[in-house]
């Protein structure tokens, strides 16, 4: 825990800043005035903002707790399991996901406009955000590091099958890949194919087969009895 980074002159401003130049597009951005170490930089900014009453550390704890413990891929897995079990639910979900998800309480920040896309033997869907890191937070939580990585953002649109192979997924030749680049405020959830041998399982048991990656499209749902990944 780092404490007491208050009122310290932690860095000298870069030369350009000393001259009062503030172009909108150069390398003397204000962030360089903060400590360079990332953890110290965040702590310093949090301290400054807290002292001015602009943020409440208890609110930060609440935000973190929400995404660390309450909102995550278990939400999406419940939706998928229900869609596998209930054809009417699935049809409604694919036709217009927002009211269906709202009814389940899965509406919120970064999930205001949801579209669910179904994997079939002829089409495999995969989601990326090449420009930043757009991701359906209410259903999947905060994206994993690889989703936000340059490698995934750069390559998922150009060579999705090579990327899938890096996740251990090989698709049959007859399966076309459709990659969804999340360039707007619409968020996509992949409805993976129900694995063989899952007939008759409860929704809860089905949900346990639904991995986060299978709802992004970089993985497949687990088969019943398959070891957890």
């Amino acid at each position: 825990m780092i404490v007491c980074i208050i009122k310290h002159d932690w860095t000298g401003p870069p030369a350009a800043a000393q001259h009062g130049i503030m172009p909108h597009d150069h390398h003397d951005h204000p962030h360089a005035l903060l400590p360079p170490d990332p953890a110290l930089r965040v702590k310093a900014l949090e301290t400054i903002l807290t002292e001015k009453g602009l943020i409440d550390p208890a609110a930060l704890d609440e935000i973190i707790d929400t995404y660390q413990n309450r909102i995550g891929p278990q939400n999406g897995a419940r939706v998928v399991a229900r869609a596998w079990s209930d054809p009417d639910f699935k049809a409604a979900l694919l036709a217009d996901a927002d009211p269906v998800l709202a009814e389940l309480g899965y509406y919120g920040r970064q999930g205001e406009h949801m579209v669910v896309v179904e994997n079939t033997g002829l089409q495999h869907n995969m989601v990326v955000c090449t420009l930043c890191s757009c991701y359906p937070w209410p259903l999947l939580g905060i994206p994993p590091g690889w989703y936000k990585s340059d490698a995934y953002r750069a390559r998922a649109v150009r060579e999705p099958r090579k990327v899938l192979a890096e996740f251990g997924v090989t698709l049959p030749e007859e399966t076309a890949v459709r990659v969804w680049d999340s360039t707007a405020e619409v968020r996509y959830l992949v409805l993976p194919m129900r694995p063989e041998g899952a007939e008759g399982l409860s929704e809860e048991d089905l949900a346990a087969l639904v991995t986060r990656d299978s709802m992004i499209g970089t993985g497949l749902a687990k088969a019943p009895g398959e070891a957890p990944s």
Partner: peptide
């Protein structure tokens, strides 16, 4: 960066890796 070359392999993480 969509379509860019040279970034190397994607490094998948375990499903239960810390958020």
């Amino acid at each position: 960066m969509g379509g860019r070359f040279g970034d190397g392999p994607v490094q998948p993480e375990a499903e239960d890796a810390p958020v």
